[in-house]
Each structure stands twice: as C-alpha cells, then as structure tokens.
Write a protein that binds this DNA or RNA. Structure first.
Length: 500
RNA sequence: GUCCCUCUCGUCUAGUGGUUAGGACAACGGGUUUUCAUCCCGUCAACGCGAGUUCGAUCCUCGCGGGGGAUGCCA
C-alpha cells in the first residue's frame, strides 16, 4: 500500500514553526517511503480566514523547497483540495450520520451555550461541555424550533458508555472512556461549514490518507475521530502524534521559567519573520527537523534531500521539545559560511539596498566585500550593521586611530607608510593577500606589531571601533572615498602630534 | 475540576539490565588573531523522587511529583 500523508493547515494566520515542523515530517515521511505528500487547505473557519494567510502558506513551502504531490494549484485525483470548495460534500455526509441516528440537529443558541459554560464553571461541576439538550428532541420539538427560524448545527452522538481505543505508532494504544470524550461535538456549523472533526475525517478518507501525522494536541480528539470513521464504516488510518514544539520564557521578576506551546511572546514564530530577519531556508529546515527527531545523536547537519531519504518515524521523540533560538542562530551562521561569495552577495544585496546603503549596480564591490563578513554573520540582516561604515562617520577622534601602546607620532608614521603603499597597490589591482603580506612586512620594518599598521588603517577607513577587516571595507567603499578618509585621518594625527 | 500525554546536562538529544552516561548549542576559561568575529583547546553540567523485580537498575513494574495538552458553531 502506498503511503499517503497530508499537511492540512488552516489559513487563519501566518505559517508558524509548529505547523511547518508538522509539514516537514509529513513531507519527509512521504519521500522516504516513496509515498505522496498532499496539501489540503482547511478553510472552514470563515471568521478567521484570510487570503494573506493562504498566500503565506504557499510562499513558505516554496521558500523551504517543499513541493506537494497533490493539492491546490496543481490539483490531483482527489480534488478539490480546498475545503470550502467541497462545501456540499460535508453536508451530505453529516446528513447521512443523522439519517443513521449517529448525529442529530441541535438548536441551542450560542447564548444558551455560553450560560451553560458559565454555570458549569461557577458550580465547579464535574460535568463539562454541552449538556446534550437536543440529543433526544421529539419531532414536535424540532418542528417548533424550525418554526422559530433557528439555524441548527449537527452534533455527533458520542456513546455515553464503553470506551474507544486507537493505535498510535509512537504512543501505542490510547484508550478513552466514552464518557470522557467531548460530549457531542458540533460536526456541521450553523453556517453550513463543517468543523475540523468532520471535514478532516471525510477528506482523509476520501483522499486515501494512510498516515495521520499531527501534533500531540490532537490526541484527545483521536477517539472522537475513530468514532466518526466507524460511524461511516471506514477504515481508520494510522496515527502518529508528533511532540509539541514549546517556547521557553523566564519571568523577569521572579526568574521562574515557564514553558508553553510556542507562541509569539516567545519571539518570532512565523516563518515569514525568520525569513525577513535573514535566516536561510536550509538552516531553518535543518534545525526544525531536529526538534523532536534525531538521526543518531551525533550527526546534525542534514540537507533537505538527505532528510528525504533518512527520515524515519522510529526516531521521533515522545516528549515535547523547546525551540532553541540560539541553536537556530548557530545553524544559520554555519550555513552562511557554506555560501560562495557570489551566493552570499546576492542574499545580502536586498538587505543593503533596503537600508539605503547600496545599489544593485554595486554588486561587484559587494562580492569583493563578502569574504570580510561571511564568518561574522549570524543573520543576513547583520550585514546592514556591518556596513555602517559606508556612511561617513566624520573626522575620526585621535583615540580611535591610535592603537594601545602607541602614540600619535608613531601612529602617524605607520599610517603614512601604509597609505604610501596601499594607494598604488589598490590602483594597480593588488589582491587582499598581497596587501596583507606587504603590510605585515611593513610592520616588521617599522618594528611594531601588525595591529599597529592594520588598526589605524581600519579605523581611518571606517571611522568605527568595530568593523569588518580593512581590506574588505576598502573594497566596498568608493576608491576615492577611501583615499579621502585616510588622508583626513593623517591630518588628524598630524595636528595631534604637533600639539604635544 | 476531569481526561490524556510526557520525564537523561540550562536547551536539543544519544544510549544501555553491568558505560568514565556520548554529542551539539548555550555558559565559563584559555590560545591564535588586526577591532569585532571566526578558528582551536579546555571546564562546568543530566538519568525527578520513592518503593518493587534483580546479583545488579538510568533502563523493567507500581506509586508520587514536575511539565505539557485537551476540555469551542478554532484548527
């Protein structure tokens, strides 16, 4: 039997880490087993639906390089893959359940349900949820409600006795007393749209889904779904509930540490945010795959293609995992270092353009600059700060130019000598290595440490205490500007050493 | 409240009825270096607790405790 799995998000917000992790695991599992990966859009919540979210879903999967085999846009033999386009289907199936006596119309108003909830809370009643008020209405009562024009919902008749068991690949058998199952959940809303439970079960069946991989927050509804499958007389698919992705937060006052389902207050959670900040898709994909899954405990670098081969259910962890932003950063730095000068320049350019520091036509200079920042970058956006020297910082302070253990006169001598060499060297197209070696020789000749020649040059060119190395900066800057800044620094040192 | 799931360094994890309990990130310290980084070396750091089974339990069983999740006309 061919493996068929799906990722079935609801377009009610931006794609977040938790959802993407689920998508990835499904995708990898399909690839590793020669199966199909289906994308299905569960847009049954019309209140929260947004087209922006839907576009974000597509953008995110494309950015990560995840291609679906069947789904919206590309279609497939089980379409449509957008639930709102399957609207009629759900009503038909819900009606079937009613006809079989396994579901019923409910006319309770939202107000009544709200009051019920309040009452249960006040009385700290052990009874929770719907009180099954409409479960056994007489035809006369129903007719009366209909006459009032109330639009009913359809609720599932959950058995009140016995128990329901389902098998989870990771967890084993999970059994729940039927009395503990959510009492008669809504299957079809009053607007005619199905709820998750109904639509999900119908579509998974109709689309031939063999394995349901979803987050553990769904475990409690497992038995409910089994009841639905059985009510329809359908085969129950394999379940595999994935560990949750958690966020960690420390109370600033008490210092207490709290964990909870990863959410915005823990930091960025949407893939779009990570992308904007300059995370690489391969880094995010690699790291996210390692939350709740491991290969052998030692190896941790995986390309998407490798994961498509090597991913397996057996190595999925059962306990929830905390999303570690620091480790993601580390991964990102590692992946940035794998980029060639050209690749990295292309990745950096948008950030520098947006910051108004560079224009597209400066690309060649950026490529020459890249070696100086590659190993300094954690995020692509860090490049903006590292290019701050592009803006003239004004006349540099002598303290900035003069290295520790040197005086103004010595620094002046050094910088003059450096300039005397650098200017013609740059003009005749010397390489970084050549200049590097020559300046080291110069330092020796002057009897000072390398820092004594490099640092005055660097600060003269950048005007900053912290910056990428001097040669890189000179490559990015306009040549005439480089000379102007060095000459200006020499003047500063001249007047400074005269004063003494 | 009720129900369900879970429990190895701070975090992600490997692992076994007998191991010096391994790796990675972080933290800390040292070295290289041209500022900042990188890089290299090192240090700190874990089997939640209590019973039971056993010659021996981190590993198997039970209880307790901690953590998480569900309890919606959201998914």
């Amino acid at each position: 039997m061919q493996v068929r799995v799906r990722y079935a998000p609801s377009p009610t917000g931006l794609q977040h880490i938790g959802g993407v992790r689920t998508a990835l695991f499904n995708y990898f599992f399909a690839r590793a087993n020669g199966g199909k990966f289906i994308l299905r859009v569960e847009d049954t919540d019309r209140e929260r639906y947004s087209t922006e979210s839907l576009q974000d879903l597509y953008d995110t999967l494309e950015w990560l390089g995840i291609k679906w085999d069947e789904g919206p846009v590309i279609g497939g033999s089980c379409g449509p893959y957008v639930q709102s386009e399957r609207f009629e289907l759900y009503r038909e199936y819900a009606q079937k359940l009613v006809d079989m006596g396994k579901a019923y119309y409910c006319y309770c108003t939202p107000q009544r349900l709200e009051e019920l909830r309040k009452k249960q809370e006040e009385e700290k009643s052990s009874e929770q949820g719907y009180d099954r008020h409409c479960r056994n209405l007489t035809p006369e009562q129903r007719a009366e409600y209909e006459k009032q024009g109330i639009k009913p919902v359809i609720r599932l008749k959950v058995p009140t006795e016995g128990s329901t068991t389902f098998h989870d690949i990771l967890m084993g058998d999970i059994t729940r007393e039927n009395k503990d199952i959510s009492p008669d959940p809504v299957l079809l809303k009053s607007d005619g749209f199905p709820t998750y439970h109904l639509a999900n079960v119908i579509d998974d069946h109709l689309m031939g889904v063999t394995h349901i991989m979803r987050a553990q927050e769904w475990i409690p509804s497992g038995p409910l779904h089994v009841i639905l499958y059985e009510a329809f007389g359908w085969e129950v698919p394999q379940y595999c509930h994935l560990p949750m992705v958690m966020g960690k937060e420390t109370d600033p006052v008490t210092g207490e540490v709290h964990f909870a389902k990863l959410s915005k207050r823990h930091g960025s959670t949407s893939v779009r945010d990570f992308r904007k900040k300059g995370y690489l898709p391969e880094a995010l994909l690699n790291y996210v795959s390692l939350v709740g899954w491991s290969y052998d405990g030692d190896r941790e670098f995986f390309t998407r293609e490798e994961l498509e081969n090597v991913f397996c259910l057996e190595k999925i962890n059962k306990a929830p995992g905390v999303f570690d932003y620091q480790k993601l950063d580390w991964f990102n730095g590692q992946y940035i270092r794998k980029k060639t000068d050209d690749e990295l320049a292309d990745l950096l350019m948008p950030y520098l353009c947006e910051a108004g520091l560079l224009k597209e036509t400066d690309r060649d200079r950026l490529v020459a600059f890249v070696p100086g920042v590659r190993e300094r970058l954690v995020l692509l956006s860090d490049a903006v700060g590292m290019c701050a020297f592009l803006k003239d910082q004004g006349e540099p302070a002598p303290e900035l130019l003069i290295p520790k253990k040197m005086d103004a006169a010595g620094t002046l001598e050094s910088l003059k000598a450096v300039y005397g060499y650098i200017r013609p060297a740059l003009e005749k197209g010397a390489s970084d290595d050549e200049m590097q070696n020559s300046l080291c020789e110069l330092a020796q000749k002057l009897g000072i440490k390398n820092a004594g020649v490099f640092n005055p040059l660097r600060t003269a060119v950048t005007g900053l205490a912290v910056s990428p190395p001097p040669f890189s900066c000179m490559r990015l800057l306009d040549r005439a500007e480089v000379f102007r800044r060095i000459e200006r620094a020499i003047k500063v040192l001249e007047s400074c050493s005269k004063e003494r």
